[in-house]
Design a protein around this nucleic acid. Sequence first.
RNA 1: GGGGAGAUUCCCGAGUGGUCAAAGGGGGCAGACUGUAAAUCUGUUGGCGAUGCCUUCGUAGGUUCAAAUCCUUCUCUCCCCA
Length: 411
Amino acid sequence: MELCEGLQVLQDRGFIQQCTDLEGLNNAMKAAPITFYVGVDPTGPSIHVGHMVPVFALAHLKRSGHKPVLLLGGGTARIGDPSGKTEMRKMLTYEDINENVQSIQKQLSAVVTMDGKNGWFVNNADWLANLNYIDFLREIGVHFSVNRMLTFEAYKKRMETGLTFIEFNYQLLQSYDYLELYRRKKCTLQIGGDDQWGNIVAGIDLVRREEKAEVFGLTFPLITRADGKKMGKSEQGAIFLDPTMCSVYDFYQYWRNVDDRDVEKFLKLFTFLSLDEIKTICAPDADINKAKEVLAWEYTKLIHGKEKADEAIAAAKAAFGGDGQGDLEAMPSIEIAESEFEAGINIMDLFARTSLCASKSEARRLVSQGGAIVNDEKITDIDFIVKAGAVKDGNIILKAGKKRFFRVIVK
RNA sequence: GGGGAGAUUCCCGAGUGGUCAAAGGGGGCAGACUGUAAAUCUGUUGGCGAUGCCUUCGUAGGUUCAAAUCCUUCUCUCCCCA
């Protein structure tokens, strides 16, 4: 089967896990541009890189002429999706959800443009929030078989640990979203992570029953890392797009440090470099570290802009280059008054004030284990006092181990 | 509604009156090795200038010289029965 441009791109880049009817979808997409949607539930103030696969897929399809609807789940977030979770998520207040919708839409607007003619942001709170319970049950609820729902993997898993009725309803709401988007925008494709498979096919069934229409579903593989750790989780926490929750430098470093085995996969998923370029970058005789730099820079540029990406790469070069030269701008930092250094600051106190150490005890451990470095000088004495003499060009560079850097700006 | 089991430090999970800041594993951090990778080995992993003190074993009380461990209240979870 010859795939249309949009599907071919997704296929080549590793986005496709399963499709309800690839041939049918392909024919539909060849015949005319289609409208498709992907949902993001606003469960936090910022999305993180784990959310980004669908966004990239959306961007690729948009590039090949199809019309995206990016659905923000302001309504569904009031319920909470049990799919793939072992326990119930904490319930969010309506206020928090609304704020999350605002901030996430802002974040996503920077990555994909929705002009309101060929692409839209929608919030399902618009049609879910004021549903009438009885009407909903009579119109929508009748189409759902509890017996069948219980056979879904997402629920089966929860049979062990417990599942509440509110969560059990989630699938009906997401299915209703699909129906609503079909009615409003003739949306005929829903894409999402593979954990959404059950919700997606349920929606397709609902559209078929209510509208006698055939619509499609397509899922992406759940992206894992070669070392088996969860995608987008660093030791500090999730890699958020919001620079106040995850500095641009840390964002860059996360990708700069990915496992060798993941580089090519991530270049395909998280950048728009052509497959030829990626092939060259990842050739067996090419420098793998160069490839990681490309990945990190490209992705950082996409999210934070070229200027910030350049700063991050410069900061990394300064930190790891060895000569201490380069731009320190993007390195995480704090400001400390010069007068404090006149008096002298104890090494443990200094580290504890940075994000390098969470507590003084941690700083003590770091120092006594030989991981504390001030301006390239290893300090192992916990009584060491950092004085004004350590300030160079208004900075003191702290290192915790070999990879974690911090800049103290002395004012 | 009735009966049973359970809630432990970041996670899983031992611990059933003092020797428990709490085994073991995972994860994290650091050291060695290296390529800012992986794998491996070692150390470390609540807070505090500390051979001690403070906070932590679902919540609130109580018994005791002493409680994660015993009693009572409450909250929540799971299982069986209705």
